[in-house]
Design a protein around this nucleic acid. Structure first.
Lengths: 220, 220
DNA sequence: TCTTTGTATTACCGGTCGGTAACTTATCGA
DNA sequence: TCGATAAGTTACCGACCGGTAATACAAAGA
């Protein structure tokens, strides 16, 4: 927020020494802020009313602009939704990379992923992944989004299988077990309410233990 | 199928003694068959393309009729969807009543319900419950549908709590546990394919044990 | 045989929505 | 100060879709 102002002030003091790129950057940053605002409003409306029943006029109205102005930031309505999906997947992947950063058993990693994914499911962009139907997208865009979903799913399977290999998890049907786990967590995106009884972290902690309860080799 | 023909033949033999209601009934039955055909085609398309992206023209086309003909059987597109939901819920409730018919422990009943609900999730009308978004409905219709969903959900909770009372299930957070179970099963409706590796029954049997594995008091 | 009833058709309407063209305005660099 | 660029605006277009007459037609009942 005040970072921009600070930089502008510093640049003014430096006079001619200031980089000519500054204003461009500032402008780009402003643009990104607005782009982000569009996405936040859009995803909120998509969750509230559904994608097809949310018109771009409504999105624009909540931002105090008009529909055509949106086309300064996005090429189409579909691109807006694809970006929403992407942001949700980005959140999930960020957590996965954090988990991969330090060595752990498959069980510990799986539990960490469950905890993290639960929190993603309490965010609008995360809920978008499971509450907005793929089918509204064109075939190529849908393939792209599904590729991202598969990528995340793969880590659930990887952690589970590596847990079976390192002995921290009992042998089981990987496919079916991962479906059960991801199904349970995805469902969080449907019933979670920010004003509910449980915080995102509490849900994550509970599910991390409960969903792996019958899988863990040593009882903690 | 041949029941109609049999009855018609019998009525013809009885001549004048035949009830004048026969043709009415036959006509009503034909009507119901056609109504059912509309619903089967409609739900299939809703799952394939989404509700909003499925036009009544498409539905009619697949039935080799025209759009206005649909209005002989339904008052609106919304009514079609509501009926699809209702049929799915009916399937679920039928199983619940069968479970309630004979006395059992909470655990046994919960497992039976999991098995049954898994099978419902492999049917089009069952999948409709979890894959077609509520939001496309008007407020009153949505309330009606959600009431039905809540009813089913309640039996999951009832069986779990009664299991805790009769000692067949360990104490746990009912709300969260049921969410985990129903989430996992609902997810079946998203990934199940009729041409897949597992049959509906196999999935049900596996999940019935796996999802209650950490809840059961006595290990079987 | 005449009439009625239900089922289907063709033609059409009103409204909405995504997207575009043309124009205005403000900001920044030179 | 002037020109270029970006970000808005108003006005509009074409397409589609749910739903509704108005009508044709076949079958059943009297």
């Amino acid at each position: 927020m005040s970072g921009d102002a600070d930089k502008r002030a510093a640049a003014a003091e430096m006079k001619l020494a200031a980089s000519p790129w500054k204003p461009f950057e500032a402008r780009r940053r402003e643009r990104d802020v607005k782009r982000g605002a569009v996405l936040r409003v859009a995803v909120s409306l998509f969750l509230e009313q559904g994608y097809d029943r949310t018109s771009l006029n409504e999105v624009a109205e909540r931002l105090n602009i008009t529909k055509p102005a949106l086309y300064n930031y996005f090429r189409s309505k579909e691109e807006i939704l694809v970006e929403c999906y992407r942001l949700g997947q980005e959140k999930a992947m960020a957590g996965i990379e954090r988990i991969l950063a330090k060595p752990d058993t498959g069980l510990v990693r799986l539990r960490a992923l469950i905890r993290h994914y639960c929190e993603v499911m309490t965010l609008d962009f995360g809920q978008c992944l499971v509450r907005v139907d793929d089918h509204v997208l064109s075939a190529p865009a849908r393939d792209q989004v599904r590729e991202g979903k598969r990528l995340i799913d793969r880590y659930f399977r990887d952690f589970l299988t590596s847990g079976m290999e390192d002995g921290s998890i009992k042998p089981c049907d990987v496919r079916l077990t991962v479906f059960a786990i991801t199904g349970a967590i995805n469902w969080v995106g449907h019933w979670y309410r920010a004003d509910g009884e449980m915080t995102a972290r509490e849900i994550g902690d509970t599910y991390a233990m409960q969903l792996t309860g019958s899988l863990a080799v040593e009882e903690t």
